[in-house]
Design a protein around this nucleic acid. Sequence first.
DNA 1: TCCATATTGATATTGAATTTCATTTTCATG
DNA 2: CATGAAAATGAAATTCAATATCAATATGGA
Lengths: 145, 145
Amino acid sequence: MAFEEEKKFFESYIREKNLKWSEQRMQILEIFLRNKKHLTADELYRMVKEKFPSVGYSTIYRTLKLLCDCGICSELRLDDGTIRFEHLYRHKHHDHLICLKCGRMVEVVDPEIEKLQERLAKKEGFILERHILLMYGLCPKCQSK
Amino acid sequence: MAFEEEKKFFESYIREKNLKWSEQRMQILEIFLRNKKHLTADELYRMVKEKFPSVGYSTIYRTLKLLCDCGICSELRLDDGTIRFEHLYRHKHHDHLICLKCGRMVEVVDPEIEKLQERLAKKEGFILERHILLMYGLCPKCQSK
DNA sequence: TCCATATTGATATTGAATTTCATTTTCATG
DNA sequence: CATGAAAATGAAATTCAATATCAATATGGA
C-alpha cells in the first residue's frame, strides 16, 4: 500500500514511546494522508468510518494527537474557529492563502517575509520560535463568479 | 468619565441599528477599554462582575459581539484555542508578537511584510482581504529567566 | 404616560473535544 | 504457541465555552 515511509515513521514513534501498534492507527494515518485537503477531525472521522464502521470518535482524536506529537501533522486554527489538520511530514514550513468564498487553501512561503519577521522580533527583543500567517482573500476562480 | 469618544461612537452605532442604549453595555465598553491587555470573555466578565455583580455572562458575549460588529474590538484566536478581544478603535492594523512563557503580547507592524504579502497573494492570483500574523517566541524578560 | 420592542440574567442547551471504563488487543516473555 | 501485564478501543458520560430560551424589566418614540 501507499505511504510506507510515513507508516514506518509512525510505527517507530509508537514503539519509542512504548505504545502499541494498532490497525485503527494505521488506517487513520493512511486515510489522513490519502487526502490532500486540510481535514477537520469530523471529516476524517466520517472518512475512516466508511472503511471502518466500528471506529470511535475518540480514537480519531487520540490518533490525531499522536500524529501531531510526532510531527506528521499539525493543527491549523482558522479564523472561523474550525480546526483543520494539515500534513507536515516532509512538508517544510509554509503559510496559507485561504479563499473566503470556497475555502480553498494554498500553501506558500516567502523567505523574505520570514526574514523580516525575524528582524521585527529582534527589534522588540523577542526570540522567535514559530509563527502563523493566514492570509484571507478571494482565489482566482471565486473572483470571476 | 473616560472614553467619551468611543462611547459616543458605540451609542450612534446602537441607534443606527435600532437597538437600545443600556447601562450594562456602557459599563462593559468602559471596563473593556480601561484594560490595556487583550482580555478573554471570561476575564472581562469577572471584571465587570466586580462593579456590576448582577451582570450575566450572556450580556458580556452579546456586547462583545456588538463591539466587534461596530469595529471597536476584534477577536483574536490564539494558537492554544483561547479567544482574546483586542482594542481596534483608532488602532490601525497590527500583527502580534506573543511570549510563549508569560503570554505578553506586543503589537507590531512592518509595512514591508504587508507589501510582500500582497505580492505573494498576487502571485497565486488571490485578492487579499485581511491576514493574521501571530509570532510566538520568548520576550526579553523571559529569556533571562 | 403608554406601550411596542429590545435587553437582561437565570437557566437550559449546544457541540466539539475529552474522559471514563469495561472489554479487547498487543506483544514481550516463558 | 500460551500467558498476562499494559495499552487501545468504542460507547457513553462529561466538560466547557459559547449560544439560545424565556419571563421579567428597561428603553424610548408617540
